[in-house]
Design a binder for these strands. Structure first.
Lengths: 205, 205
DNA sequence: CGCCATATTGAGATATATCAAGTAAAGTGG
DNA sequence: CCACTTTACTTGATATATCTCAATATGGCG
C-alpha cells in the first residue's frame, strides 16, 4: 500500500481540536502519541496513548472536524493513508474489510476498557491497571515506557499528578515497580495484578 | 431492508457476556437497553444505555464472543440484521458505507465523551452531565426518562447509588430537577448546565 | 554551573464511600 | 382489591481516600 511518511518532533501536533479533517488516516511507525480533549473547566482529558502500530484518526471518519488533538510525546514517524486509497483496497480485498471492521470494533472495545478503569474506585488500582496495560501492549516484553508526564497520566486516569506520584512511589517502596528514566519493569507482577484487581494498599508506609 | 424483529420483556437478555457472536446487528425500535460488563471485583460496569434508533453489537464486529452483555430495561422491540445482508447493502450503495463509517466513528466519539464524564471529579457534575446528555439524546424534547435503577446509574458514572440519590435530591431541592416515576424535566436547565461545567454545589442544604 | 520545568513529598480540608436505618414503591397471593 | 413481602430508594453519621496548596528535591538544558 502506497504511503506518505511524516516526521514529528517531540511536542509537535499531528492535528488539533477543531482542525478540519483532512481525509487521511495515520499509522504510527515509531514513537508515542497522546490523543486529548479539553474539558469544560479548562483542564485536559487524555483519551488514549498510542504507540507503534496504532491507527490514528478512526474517531474522525466522515466527520467534519476533529474532536480531539494529537501530540507527539517523543519523536515520531507517522505513515499517512488517504481515505480514497483505503476504501479502494477495502473494495478489492474483502478480507481487508473484515480486518478493518475488527480494527474499529477493537477501538470501541479499548475505550470500554478504559471507561472500566476510570470506574475503579481506588487510585492505586487505576495506576496498577495502567502499568499492566502498557506492559501487555508491549507484546510480551518485560519492560514498558512512560513517555508521558505525570500530569498526562493523571488526566488519563482521572486523578491528580500528586496522587499518581504517590501511587508510583508506594509501588516502588514495596519493590514491585522498578523505574528508570522512562522505562519500568514490574518485579512484583503478581502483587501488582492483585492491586489492579482491587486488593487494598496503603499509600503511606 | 429485510429485517426480523424480536420482542424483549423487561429484564430479558439480548445477549450475555461470553456468548458466541451470532453474526447479527440489532437496532432498537422501541424501549431501552443497558450494555454492561462485569468488573474484576464482582461489581458491574455499565458501558452505555441505548434507546430507540441505537445500534447494538458494533463492538462485536468480527469478534468471536461478546465482551459485554445487553439487557432490556423496559419491554423492547429489536430489529435484527444479519452481517451478510448489511455488507451486501454496503457494497451496492457507497453512500450507506459512508453512513456506516460515521456510525462507528460516532460510537467511538460517544465512548470518548463517556470517559470524559468519568474524569469529571465531582459527583454532582457527573450526574448533571448525565441528565443533560439524556435530554439531548431525546432530540429537543423537554423531558427524558430514567428507565434504569440508581445502581445502574451509579455503575455508569463510577459512583455509589447513595451518592447518585443524594445528587438527584440536591438538584430537586433547588427546583432545578423535577422527577415523576421515571420521567424528568429540568426547570433549571441553565443552572444544571453550570453544575455540569464544574460549578460547585453542596450536596446537603 | 545555575536555571527552569517536572516530580516528589507533607499536612490539612473535603468529598465520597461505607454502613445502617428508615421510607416508598412494586410485585404477590389471597 | 387489599394486606403482605420484597425490592428499590432516600437519608443520616462516620471513616477514609483523594484533592488542594505548599515546600522540597530532582533532572534536563542552556
Amino acid at each position: 500500500m502506497e504511503q506518505r511518511c511524516i516526521q514529528l518532533r517531540c511536542g509537535d501536533h499531528l492535528f488539533r481540536v477543531s482542525d478540519a479533517v483532512d481525509q487521511h488516516l495515520h499509522i504510527i511507525r515509531s514513537g508515542d502519541i497522546k490523543l486529548y480533549q479539553h474539558c469544560r473547566d479548562g483542564g485536559q482529558h487524555i483519551i488514549e496513548f498510542l504507540g507503534p502500530g496504532a491507527w490514528v484518526g478512526l474517531e474522525s471518519l466522515n466527520e467534519q472536524e476533529r474532536h480531539a488533538g494529537a501530540v507527539a510525546l517523543t519523536d515520531c514517524e507517522i505513515a499517512t493513508v488517504p481515505y480514497t486509497l483505503l476504501t479502494a483496497v477495502l473494495d478489492r480485498h474483502p478480507r481487508s474489510a473484515e480486518a478493518f471492521g475488527q480494527l474499529l470494533s477493537g477501538t470501541i472495545a479499548r475505550h470500554q476498557q478504559h471507561a472500566a478503569m476510570l470506574r475503579s474506585t481506588s487510585a492505586v488500582q487505576r495506576v496498577a491497571q495502567f502499568l499492566l496495560h502498557r506492559l501487555e501492549q508491549a507484546q510480551g516484553a518485560v519492560r514498558a515506557t512512560l513517555p508521558m508526564s505525570r500530569q498526562d497520566i493523571a488526566d488519563y486516569l482521572g486523578l491528580t499528578s500528586s496522587t499518581v506520584s504517590r501511587c508510583l512511589s508506594a509501588l516502588r517502596r514495596r519493590g514491585w515497580l522498578a523505574m528508570g528514566q522512562r522505562a519500568y519493569t514490574l518485579p512484583g507482577l503478581q502483587d501488582v495484578e492483585m492491586v489492579a484487581a482491587g486488593a487494598p494498599l496503603a499509600l503511606d508506609c
